[in-house]
């Protein structure tokens, strides 16, 4: 069945030969809240979160899938939100760093482990690291420190907090009942 998403925006005045500015209505569940919104097709999930939703916890480090700072959980899986056009994710559930802590402010065990192990310095890659680590645990493919290192290599940290990041994840894994090492 054709699902040409409702193109609600009229073609904007644009120079000859240029594609018209079309807005598309999509629904996203962001950190548990279902929202309907209009997006242009060229808006990435990252820019939507940061610019439209003011959820700036998700970071833009390279905008090209080379650093992992923009990592969010999309339908439970970690992805680079900078390479995801929002319009293509209609109906998805998005979990960002802002949605990890409990409503009463209690930190998610991964967040708490990052604080305890000083697993960050400047903090800019941190939300992406934490979302990625949450995704990693969910995937269940990492059992050893070596595997954590490999499967966290999509998240660059220029401050070089890697050993502490691995320690934090090992702790969170143990708390979650996953045997590390």
């Amino acid at each position: 069945m054709p699902v040409d998403p409702a193109a609600t925006g009229a073609a904007a005045a644009s120079p000859a030969g240029r594609a018209p500015a079309m807005q598309h209505r999509i629904t996203l569940t962001i950190n548990g809240t279902r929202r309907q919104m209009e997006v242009a097709p060229w808006t990435t999930l990252l820019d939507l979160l940061r610019e439209e939703m003011e959820l700036t916890g998700t970071k833009k480090g390279c905008d090209h899938g080379q650093c992992g700072a923009c990592t969010v959980l999309l339908n439970g899986q970690r992805i680079n939100s900078c390479l995801a056009l929002a319009v293509t994710k209609d109906g998805a559930e998005v979990l960002t760093v802002e949605g990890l802590a409990a409503a009463d402010g209690t930190l998610h065990p991964m967040q708490a482990a990052f604080v305890e192990h000083d697993a960050f310095q400047c903090g800019y890659c941190t939300p992406g690291q934490i979302c990625s680590a949450v995704g990693l645990l969910k995937e269940g493919h990492a059992r050893s420190a070596e595997e954590i290192r490999e499967l966290m290599s999509g998240n660059l940290c220029r401050c070089g907090a890697y050993p502490n990041i691995v320690a934090a994840i090992e702790q969170a894994m143990q708390q979650a009942g996953v045997a590390a090492r």
Binding site: M1, P2, V3, P5, R18, A19, H24, V87
Partner: peptide
Amino acid sequence: MNRFSYSRPGAVSE
């Protein structure tokens, strides 16, 4: 990134 239009067909042939 340029502007472009977008569609999501429901079948390969489409």
